[in-house]
């Protein structure tokens, strides 16, 4: 039975290899989110539709927080005074809420996915890197 399992693992690893994003090195539009005093800035962010983006979350607080979003399927621990990176999308137009799991009453925000051209603020955020 262990031989069969070994064969399955081998096949699975090949499948996973194919699934590995070929665009790992590709440039993604970059957006930045800041956590300060258990509040997210900006609380509303507009990102382009049907495009994968890179989101840098900068935790400027002295406590740990966890970025959580059910609609985005994302969960990331944010360590104090550290930056964390997650990738979002591609998403259809709509509103996607997120919150800080350790301070859900104050740390809240929404990501608006829009077909419209990038706004001035998001363009500015793209120049973060």
């Amino acid at each position: 039975m262990f031989k069969i399992v070994a064969k399955i693992s081998f096949i699975t690893s090949y499948i996973l290899l194919f699934m590995v994003s070929a665009s790992v090195l590709a440039q993604r539009p970059v957006f930045k989110l800041v956590l300060k005093n258990h509040l997210f800035y900006p609380a509303e962010m507009i990102i382009p539709a049907n495009k994968k983006i890179k989101l840098i979350i900068d935790n400027q607080d002295d406590s740990v927080e966890e970025f959580d979003s059910f609609s985005l399927n994302r969960e990331k621990v944010l360590f104090p005074q550290q930056q964390a990176i997650i990738y979002i999308g591609p998403l259809p137009p709509g509103h996607y809420t997120f919150f800080g799991e350790y301070h859900p009453n104050s740390a809240r925000g929404v990501i608006t996915v829009s077909d419209a051209v990038l706004t001035k603020s998001t363009k500015k955020a793209n120049n973060v890197n």
């Binding site: 996973l16 699934m19 590995v20 994003s21 070929a22 665009s23 790992v24 993604r28 049907n50 994968k52 890179k54 059910f70 609609s71 399927n73 994302r74 969960e75 990331k76 990176i85 997650i86 990738y87 999308g89 591609p90 998403l91 259809p92």
Partner: peptide, 22 residues
Amino acid sequence: EQVDIIASNSHLWSTSYLISED
């Protein structure tokens, strides 16, 4: 998917109106 090691595609459907994940 979150760290872009595996490619993620668009959502096929949404059943959030029936059973929300939260």
